[in-house]
Write a protein that binds this DNA or RNA. Sequence first.
DNA 1: CTGAAAGCGCTAACAG
DNA 2: CTGTTAGCGCTTTCAG
Lengths: 349, 349
Amino acid sequence: MVLKRMAFPDPDKRKIQMSDIARLAGVSTATVSRALNGSELINDETRVRIQELARSLNYSINVRAKNLRLGDDRTIAVVIPRDQASKQHVSDPFFLGMLGSLADALTDQQYDLLLSRVDADHLGDLAALYDSGRASGIIVIGQWRHHDQLNEMALRRVPFVVWGAQLAGQLYCSVGSDNRSGGQLATAHLLGLGRRRIAFLGDTDLPEVAQRHEGYLLAHQQHGVAVDPALHIPAPFTAGEAQAAMQAFMQHGVKLDGLFAASDLIAMNAMGVLVGHGLDVPRDVSVVGYDDIEAAAHCHPPLTTIRQSIELAGAEMVDCLRLLMQGKPAAPRVLATSLQIRQSSIAAR
Amino acid sequence: MVLKRMAFPDPDKRKIQMSDIARLAGVSTATVSRALNGSELINDETRVRIQELARSLNYSINVRAKNLRLGDDRTIAVVIPRDQASKQHVSDPFFLGMLGSLADALTDQQYDLLLSRVDADHLGDLAALYDSGRASGIIVIGQWRHHDQLNEMALRRVPFVVWGAQLAGQLYCSVGSDNRSGGQLATAHLLGLGRRRIAFLGDTDLPEVAQRHEGYLLAHQQHGVAVDPALHIPAPFTAGEAQAAMQAFMQHGVKLDGLFAASDLIAMNAMGVLVGHGLDVPRDVSVVGYDDIEAAAHCHPPLTTIRQSIELAGAEMVDCLRLLMQGKPAAPRVLATSLQIRQSSIAAR
DNA sequence: CTGAAAGCGCTAACAG
DNA sequence: CTGTTAGCGCTTTCAG
């Protein structure tokens, strides 16, 4: 038939399918289906015979057709929005880690991971992933400045979960680390080391960073130490810009003896700038980062940081999403953080 | 704070589909299909009416069903094999960059990107991605030690492309940078700076690294400089292990005045070790990396490196894969490299 | 120009 | 236990 010719431009190389196995085994496709899906109501001998036949021909059930029939996609879209301003992909290793964690968690639950490229200022396109049946749920890594757009998507009943901060009036489900307490931990550590002029490096326009900053302020308050607003260095998550911001800050000659950065990536870059200005880390300035990416343990000096459990994060997000996809409610989740002390804050012995 | 519970999908509310649009518009699904796919043989007025109806209901054609009918998946699996030994996901930022590049190239060609987790020692599972119709083609990032398994997959006529080195007796299509010439460029640069004891950091069991090492040897030969085998530091691509290897090397007290590392990641870690041993980079030791990841420009000192065009890489791999999927042959491709000089090899001014 | 009908590759009642 | 049948949501002949 004409249709067949179109579907398979090269008929000799047509991919083997269930009906072929059925014909070869002298049974119906229903039986093959049952054998390959491990149904109970089938003769053991038949099952084995069919399974072996399939394996010998490298036949695997076509998952797409199966899922269409089952009405279940088993595909989750994961989105790392592209930076709004620079139009560049995020290059923070933290995201690679998160992606790996999600890949593991999704594989465990037999979901495929569709990696999707979406511009941060077109977050509306996200819903199309769901509407078009490309994915039955969506995971967004980073809420950036898009709280409102995410809320709109929630109103449209698209099942999705966001890695980020929990905000007031939030209609969607978020999973994130306890930013406030993380910021507080980091800052208390620095204050405990006797540091009194602790700079904060990060862009508080981003909700997560804002919360880390709140923790920073809180710790100061608890220690009865006043915060000099001049020590706030607004810098985005990208390495180059953070470095430039840090450089500019140093040019101003504002004194500091501690630094809390909103991510390990920018902390490491900031350390470079400090050293470039003749300062010793940690003797002159103690530095603490956030994330505990793998590189944090291997940079020089090794970076003290706030650890977020990335493995847990992936599993939690998938768990929330599954609830949502079942039509059940899913409350935002806040994951514990811990302080990982290394030599960037306090010299070894 | 009060955790609000939020539920999204309404279980009873079935997802809207083409037949709904058809009914609402008083036409057949065939007409809706034509309208939404921009067919020529349809009344303009009808088309517009249907398109507007669809948009107002947030309806998008179900891509899965469409592709099933069309016999074309439009999905490509991208695989970053998990490290054989450590069972960990790769954390080299280079891979995130490659992933981004592939995401762009695939999106440009209207392909979905399926990110897949496969253990490096079970590369055979890769073929299942194809056999099961999950993807109509596969891109493997890194050939590691699996040349033979990849060759087997090629024999099975699975359409796939590998990011890596071109090897003798290779049955599959690879895309990679010109490792030999990259290694040669890097080393010639160091030799040109008067360096004579240049260490090589990398695991030459990996084909790409082996070729970079060949370039290193070639450059020495061209400059009439003998290579001291003691300067070969076998270290894998992971930061921690590379650092340990470098540390052990320094312990031996072997003198060096130059270092060529097989990746930026390990180059940066090695610089840390050098500095930790009281050496100045670049005064005492000039360092060159490989990849030109974003961090290379921002570390301290900024890293001289061999640049591979990652944007081009993604497009080339997708291009090869499309040929393969059409049953056409695709020759391996070798991409040009260039030397990016920064301050880790030669002090500014 | 539009609709009816026949599938894409698979599964699940429903009957044997 | 196994086959028959009727679709999953869509596209495309083939006839109007």
